[in-house]
């Protein structure tokens, strides 16, 4: 039993940072500001999974539950603010492309 859960535990320990890398890649390579936020969301999913796994493999899932719920609430607020930013940026520049946004700053 313990061996099996050790393998499972390592699977989670590998997956969560991989999601972080995917998110960083998505943010770093795109020029579209909405896609950046999507990259951020992918990273957050990685953290959610790791937190839940931390509770599960520690035998204390009830304790991480409020942490995950708090995290989701915070995430929604951040996302709403970034949506407000995006809409204001698009109103000013009529583009989602970071190159155009930087160019017009000039």
């Amino acid at each position: 039993m313990s061996f099996e859960s050790l393998i499972l535990f390592k699977c989670y320990l590998i997956t969560a940072p991989v999601l972080f890398v995917i998110g960083i890649y998505a943010i770093g390579t795109t020029r579209n500001i909405i896609a950046m936020i999507i990259g951020l969301e992918i990273m957050t999913k990685g953290v959610t999974v790791l937190l839940a796994a931390a509770g599960y493999f520690n035998g204390k899932p009830q304790i991480v539950e409020p942490l995950i719920i708090t995290m989701i609430v915070v995430e929604v607020v951040i996302l709403t603010i970034s949506a407000a930013y995006i809409i204001n940026i698009v109103k000013k520049h009529d583009s989602l492309d970071t190159h155009n946004i930087n160019k017009l700053k000039g």
Partner: peptide, 15 residues
Amino acid sequence: VATVMMLFSAALFFL
């Protein structure tokens, strides 16, 4: 991004 890193660290500490 920094916040996500911080949460990763909090999760590991919790573990």
